[in-house]
């Protein structure tokens, strides 16, 4: 970072406005934190309601932890390949950027496919959000996360279209950095989901 070189010479109050890249990342970071606060409300609802099954099925009866482990692996690996996208971006290598974005998209899409198949299996057994307070909270929390991942996948496709048409100009680079922050934050939320919702039933 060139900031580290200048640091000793000029005090922080006299350095002038930060670069657009820093300001954009910081603004997006604030958005992510507010998004995480939304999730904290859903987590609180789940924690309060997780025992209120109204005589319906409990989490221990419903959740297939092997399935969840594969989902977790997909999301974790996609987070890593998203990091490789950022390295390709730093090196200005458009081909590697396309490659790792495609891998990220494939892993994210398989996560969504696995989650949808889980939900459809549950629905076919008559397990739906109206069955009990526990299931309402479960579908709200996991569904909101799934929705975020779906939006992220759409965003990734749009970004690749923009890279193809507009090239790696600074504005596009900043948008890609924001996308990577979003994607990593979704993986962060998923750690909470698999620990509290899925592994929590074993405690």
């Amino acid at each position: 970072m060139s900031g580290a070189v200048v640091e000793g010479a000029i005090p922080i109050s006299q350095r002038g406005p930060a670069s657009t890249r820093v300001v954009v990342s910081y603004g997006f970071w604030l958005f992510l934190l507010s998004d995480i606060v939304i999730f904290s409300g859903l987590f609180a609802a789940y924690a309060v309601l997780s025992q209120r099954t109204a005589g319906g099925p409990t989490g221990a009866q419903l959740f297939d932890l092997r399935h969840v482990f594969i989902e977790t692996s997909c999301l974790l690996l996609s987070s890593f390949t998203c990091g490789l996208c950022m390295i390709a971006l730093e090196r200005g290598s458009q081909r590697m950027l396309y490659l790792w974005s495609a891998v990220t998209f494939a892993l994210g899409a398989s996560f969504i496919a696995l989650e949808l198949s889980e939900f459809l299996t549950l629905f076919s057994q008559g397990v739906n959000p109206t069955r009990s307070a526990f299931l309402s909270a479960f579908f709200a929390l996991v569904g909101t996360h799934g929705l975020h991942v779906t939006v992220g996948l759409c965003w990734l496709v749009i970004m690749m279209a923009q890279v193809a048409t507009l090239g790696l100009r600074p504005k596009i680079k900043r948008r890609l950095v924001c996308f990577s922050l979003f994607w990593h934050a979704l993986d962060l939320v998923w750690i909470g989901v698999f620990t509290i919702v899925y592994l929590g039933v074993r405690t």
Binding site: V37, S40, A44
Partner: peptide
């Protein structure tokens, strides 16, 4: 801090 307030406060 906010996440802690929301989650533990609700509980």
């Amino acid at each position: 801090f906010v996440v802690g307030l929301v989650v533990f406060g609700s509980l």
